Structures are given as C-alpha cells and as structure tokens.
Amino acid sequence: MIRFRDQFNIFIFVLSGIFLHAQEKKQFPGISTILSKINPDTKTDSWILVHKSYGKDNILREAGAKKEYESQSSGFNIGIAEEDEFYYIVDFSSGKPEYITDLNALRKFVGKVDNIQDAAVFASTEGYIIDEEFRDLAANYYEDKSNYYLDLGKLTSKECPYQKKHFTLTIGKSAESISNVKDNGAYIELYNKKCTNNPRLLKLEQKEEQKDEPKKSRKPAKRR
C-alpha cells in the first residue's frame, strides 16, 4: 500500500512538472526572426521576406528559386515601427511577383495558425504589438496542447495621455481568430504640459485656488 502511494506521489510530481514546464513563458525574439519563421498557408514554394531600413533592402528569407522583384516604398510592421523602417513580402505563387505590404494581406498570406509566429501575425492585424522595450509585459508567450497565450501590448491612446496597455490573448492552434482577450491594464501613461487632464497640472491648479480663497473671503476692517 505504501509502495503504491509512493509511486502515485511520484507520478503526480512528474505530471505537475510537465504542466509547469508547458506553462513557462518565453520571450518573443526580434521582429525579423518572427517574420522569418512564419508558415504561409498559400500554395507557394517561392517567396521573399524583405526588411527595408533607410532605403536599403535586406533579404531576411528567400524560399525557392531566386527571382527578380521591385523594391517597395511602403510595408508593414508587427512591433513598434521605427522611422523609415518596414517589412514586405514578395509572393511568386501566381507565377509573377505579388507584393504584400500591409497587415491584412500578411494575414491572408499566413492563413491558419501553424506556429507561434503565425499567432503573433494574427494578433498584429488586430492592433496588438510586440513591445521589445517591455518584453516581460508585452512580448512573451506560452502554450498548451490546444492554444497559444500571447502577452502583447497595444497603443490605446495617442492623445492626452499617451497610453499603452498590455493584454493576454488566447489563439487556438490551427485557428484563424483570437478566442479570448484579457486586459492587464496600462503599463505606460505619459502626460505633457499641453494635457488639460494632466494630474500634476490639476494638483498645481488646486493649490493655486486654495491660496486665492483666503484673499477673496477676507472682509475689510470696520472703522470705529
């Protein structure tokens, strides 16, 4: 009986270890690495992934025979876009070059989710970003048997205040949509001097009002 109990405890311990390992979060690599590992759903054995930075094309992946293409002046990004930097894909599935320069076209090119990189692309088409500056909050993931769970950021306001929030997204393996979104709150909230709703500015205004109130309520002294 004791031996059976010991074996059962060992089994539970091993099972728990496997479960915890499966839940372990991993940080996303760089944007270029993610895009290089997408698995296109379209029937193509020839395509090129290009990273263009300050007018210069850098081929990150070239699948199939080398073919000629024209450099593009615009493209997409799945992270925080830098100035004069973007990606585009040249797809030769129809026999002639077709250029993928926006996120919707990228999503169609990728198709169903075959790996975590595909899941990141799906999320980016819904406005989420891989925030490489805040990897622990908005650039990591874990997975189980059925789903990928992505912790990503999202720019929720460009007005006052400038704000970024982070979310946990659930995307099913072989799915084509986000099944659940958990809001984890803001991790960046920036105010400037022009923001009328700046908490610091409001506190200063309240202090000024409190200073002025005694002066306004002070009554002139009576003459005898």
Rank of each mutant, 00 (worst) to 15 (best):
H51D: 13
W47T: 07
A119G: 10
S157Q: 06
S74Y: 09
I10G: 02
V90F: 01
T33S: 11
T42G: 01
V110P: 10
D118C: 03
E143M: 11
I130K: 07
R200Q: 12
N180S: 08
I34Y: 12
L20G: 05
N184M: 15
A138N: 04
I18W: 09
F4Y: 14
E159Q: 15
F109M: 09
S16K: 02
A81N: 03
Y149L: 06
S94T: 01
I38M: 11
V90S: 00
K66M: 01
L137W: 02
E126Q: 14
Y87Q: 10
E205I: 13
D45A: 03
S93Q: 01
I34G: 15
S157V: 03
V181L: 02
A221N: 09
Q117L: 02
A119S: 15
A105K: 12
E126K: 15
K215L: 15
T42Q: 04
I116D: 05
E176L: 05
F19V: 12
F167G: 12
I18H: 03
I38N: 09
Y88M: 07
L152K: 08
R224D: 12
A120F: 00
C160H: 08
F13Y: 09
F109A: 04
E213M: 14
L103I: 07
D84L: 03
E213Q: 13
K222M: 10
F134Q: 15
G153I: 04
T44M: 06
K158F: 02
A186K: 08
E132H: 09
M1F: 08
A139E: 04
Q23T: 07
G55A: 11
T168K: 00
D151K: 02
L190F: 06
V181N: 01
A221Y: 13
Q7G: 12
K96T: 00
L150C: 11
F13I: 05
N115E: 07
S93E: 00
K26M: 09
P214D: 11
P161H: 12
P40N: 11
K222D: 13
K26G: 01
Y69D: 00
T44A: 02
G95E: 00
E82G: 07
Y128A: 09
E176G: 12
K194Q: 00
G185K: 01
K67F: 02
S217G: 05
L201Q: 03
